[in-house]
Structure formats: C-alpha cells, structure tokens
Design a binder for these strands. Structure first.
Lengths: 216, 216
DNA sequence: GTCTATACTTGGATAGAC
DNA sequence: GTCTATCCAAGTATAGAC
C-alpha cells in the first residue's frame, strides 16, 4: 500500500534517494514562491521537504544549486503549456485570450514569481547570473514566437523587430509580477488583459482575413 | 578650512548629526545599487559611510528604515528631472527622445536598480511592502502624465486607459532593469529606444499638427 | 542514504564608556 | 553623538554515527 499511498522517504528501499531529491526540489520551488530567494535557506527548504538541511548539501552540494534545479523544474513544466498556446493562436485576439488563460493561472500559481526571484537575486551571487541567463533563453524564444504570431496579419508586420519586442514582453511580465507581489492583489493583470483585448479586436477588425483561414 | 573642504564627521560641533545621517543615506543608496538588498547590511553600509554600524540604529532605528530613507532620496532626486521631461514634450517623438536621455542615464546611474531592489524584496519583510507601495505612487502618476502626452495627438487617444498603460510602463521599466542587471550589458535599452523612435516618427507623421503648436 | 551534532560566519540590535 | 564591545539569532557547510 506504500505504492499508491503517500510515499514516505526511506520506506521503500532503493527509491529513497530519488524521492528525497524530488521532495527537495518541490520544497525549493514552494520556498522561492512564498518566502523568496533570501528566505529560501537550506533549513527552510529542509523543513518543507520533511528532512534535515544536511540533505540539501548531500544531494545538490549547495543551496544555490538546488534553487537552480527548482528553476529548471518550473521552467520546463510551463514551457509545454506556453508552446501549445502560441501554436494554437492565429490572430491577436486569439493570442491574447490564450495568454490570459495561461498567464493568469501562472501568475496565480506563482511560477513567474520563482523566475523573478532568481533573476533579481542572481547578480549578488557570483556565477549565478550566467546560469540564470542560460535558463532564460527558451522564454525569449517563446515570446518571440508569440510576437511573430501577433504581428503576422498586421501590414508591414514582418518588418517589426521581434527580438526587441520579445525582450520587452518578458520584461513586462517580470515587472508586472513584481508590482503584483507588492500589492498582494492578483486581479490587476486580468483587468489589463481585458482592456488589451478590446484594442486587439479593433486591430484584428482593421485587418480581416483575406481568405478562409487554414484552421480546418 | 573645514567649511569648504571635505567635511569630517565630528570636526564641526553640532553639525555632526545631520552629516552622519546624510552619509548613511548616501552609503545605503550605493549599497543597494552595488550589492543589492540582501547585501545592504548595517555593517556594509557603515563601512561605506565610514562609521560603525551602531550609527545605523541610532539614527534610523533599523536597517529597513534606513533603506526606506535611501529610497526616498533617489525617488525625490529624480522626480524633478522626470517631470520637466514630460512637461517639455508635446509629441510622441519628443517624449521618446527625452525619455531616452533621462532613462538611460538613470539606468546607468542605477537609480532604477534601487527601486527594483526595494520592490522585489519588500514582500519578505513584514510591513515593508506597504511603505514601498506608498513611495511608488508618484512614479505611477508621472508615467500616466507621460502616457497622456504620448496619446494626446492620436485619434481617439482620449479613450485610452492611461492608468493601466502607466502601470505597464512602470512594469516594463522595472523588468528591463532586472534583465539588464542580469546580463551586465547596459546598452540594450538604448537600442530599444532607437527602434521605438522609428515607429514613433511614423505615428507622429500620420497625425501632423493641425495648426501651429503653442510652443512659442 | 539519512540522521544528529557541531564548527564557523555573518548580521541585527543593544549596553555602556567617552 | 559617537565609539567599542558584546549578545543573540540564523545561515552554510561538514563530520561522523547509524
């Protein structure tokens, strides 16, 4: 019954290591979300994972390494949802609707918060900035895909500097996360999407599809 | 000669208190810029100010209070420059040019970094978030003025949700600061302004002044 | 692999001399 | 008002038993 029930560390021989490791990663994600980078100490993470803090150093060598593993976890976890979102949208309105669904749930779940915590504290830890930057690449690529989709049907849209725009999009997402975590209100972003959708519908209306879309 | 020369703390009777206090504020600003919120300890600030850390607690009661005073310092210091910038611009192009001048110098000087450090770490210290939020109000008001200026000559611009747009502008500024401090490059923002200016000129060209501007 | 115990460091804050 | 000296809490990391 240990198989289908709640797995206790150490009760299944041989599986303890991987289980503890995953528990620590999950605990690190939760800690980054709820108490931030500075609060995510080995003791705090160990407490959340239900094991002593020495396990952090046994499995990851240092707290920072564990936090990077946590960043990988949230990053890869959400990338699938984002990709299908961008791939499925063919107009600015559709893109915004999809973005609202995915982004607000992400903001609520705190995944963006994890990213923001790592980015804002990376400059203080030697060598961490480069590691975080590497893990940011897929986010920029994804944002650029979204920008390309958004301007696809706008006249002269192909001339838009999509790389720069993608940087601004990511920056805006991070900045909004900072502002929301400050005020505690998580509703502002949704209002923002509502307003943006109005304008998007206007733009899409100005440039209606010239023929049937290939959505079949 | 102590008057015109470098003032040493304690050498002029009665003036020591205010001088030390200001030294601590300046040191706190520099510390927030260079080593961030987590690195801005009482000892670090005292070292930069050339006095023992006990002075931090004598003059401000706690480290957090001193950091708030530092935030007030940079906030009020730059507000004048921003206000004259917004007031002096009457077109989107002019606004962007002025913004490029002021913002890039601010990003280089690290004033935005101070703001970002306080915002991103505020949620972790009980009671700090509310204080930081209060000090953020003039930034939003200023951004809203800028947005109003920018859309003044765009048709139906009066219908734009300027408050929401201002929030996005501030968020974008903070997010760009995070990304720039991560990569260490401080040139991306300038490139961004260059691109934006191209589009602004396009928009301004589409809506030329109907009559002579009241710039005389 | 996991635990307890501990060495070492740093930071916030206060006491008391001058 | 400023200084030195000190207390106490919390953090990283390691040693060694099981």
């Amino acid at each position: 019954m240990a198989v289908s029930g709640v797995r206790r560390r150490g009760t299944v021989e041989g599986a303890g290591s991987a289980q503890t490791r995953q528990d620590l990663v999950d605990a690190a994600v939760a800690a980054l979300r709820e108490v931030g980078f500075s609060g995510a100490s080995a003791r705090e993470i160990g407490r959340r994972a239900g094991c002593p803090q020495s396990q952090v150093f046994y499995h990851f060598g240092s707290v920072v390494n564990l936090l990077l593993a946590a960043l990988d976890e949230v990053s890869t976890r959400r990338m699938g949802a984002y990709r299908s979102m961008v791939a499925g949208a063919s107009s600015l309105t559709e893109l915004l609707d999809a973005a609202q669904t995915v982004l607000t749930s992400d903001l609520a779940a705190g995944d963006v918060r994890v990213l923001a915590e790592m980015i804002s504290n990376a400059p203080m830890v030697p060598g961490l900035a480069a590691e975080v930057e590497r893990r940011l690449v897929p986010w920029f690529e994804l944002a650029e895909d979204a920008v390309r989709t958004a301007v696809a049907r706008v006249p002269f849209g192909g001339l838009a500097p999509t790389a720069d725009a993608a940087r601004v999009v990511v920056a805006g997402l991070l900045g909004l996360e900072l502002l929301e975590s400050l005020s505690g209100e998580r509703r502002r972003a949704e209002q923002l999407f509502g307003r943006a959708r109005t304008f998007a519908a206007l733009l899409d209306g100005l440039n209606p599809p010239t023929s049937r879309e290939t959505t079949s």
